[in-house]
Amino acid sequence: MSTRELTYVKAFNEGMHQIMAEDPDVFLIGEDVAGYGGVFHMFDGLLDTYGQKRVKDTPIAEQAIIGLGVGAAARGLRPVCDLMFMDFIGVAMDQIFNQAAKMKYMFGGAVSVPLTITTAGGAGMSAAAQHSQSLEAWLAHIPGLKVALPATPYDAKGLIVGAIRDDNPTIVVLQKKMLGVKGPVPEELYAIPFGEAHVAREGTDTTIVAIARMVPEALKAAEMLASDGISVEVIDPRTVQPLDTDTIVASVKKTNRALIVHEAVEFGGIGAEISSQIQEEAFDYLDAPVARLAAPFAPVPYAPILENAYVPDAARIEQAVRRLLERK
């Protein structure tokens, strides 16, 4: 089979179609996922293909949506529960972190919860404080959960399939701003295993670990820096839980510098964890303190001028790399 260009959302949608065709235990529930195909078109065509039994609209009831998924997963089904905007996980948090995440362990391994939660995160659309957040660090902090943040169409497809095949509760966070981004996607069904970082660009002068939509921004920055002879390695962890520390550390040992970029707020963000791991594993290889570039410690603002200042972009990544490399 061949590879062609698909948009991010279409690639995700294709993954959903193919995994539902493959595994009859996979079903999808969420608000407006069936008749409307999801407010972001993520689930277009699934109702028509797989019918009302497997593709269901729910009332606005996030706690029940996730809880239903937990119960059904415990019985061996493979639910995909959609939460539309990542911010809405707040409403369902008990079911996610007290129930789904802990059942396996606290029941002594008796129950597996092969639940997949899909949602869309990220700012940049003037959707303001309750529709723009990047909360992956919250989730990554909870033992029992796995968290994926696809940054390419290829990964959007591969990670949703990997998530659904995984026997643990997983959360796949799509990027609202990337839905229309195009990239090569193989036609056949494939899964990307969790915990394998992608070296998005090889380089020797510094490592950028970029999360989600910051990956394309970092690649843009790398291109800008390349014209000045600065060689940047860009690493996309793809999943922040589990986190592929080995790939990151190997890269930093080569480049001796690291910048971590994410659009979640810096304080307590996943960058803090990555930074800590780098210094623990590669301290003797560092030529500079591990740097972070992330959102300031404020909710996401509405006005475009504020939001632009809030979210890192290629230009600021470029500056941050130059600061990191500055030699006198």
Binding site: A288, F297, R316, R323
Partner: peptide
Amino acid sequence: DVAIITTVRGDD
């Protein structure tokens, strides 16, 4: 002026 907005930690 831009740099002050997004938090940057590191070498400064």
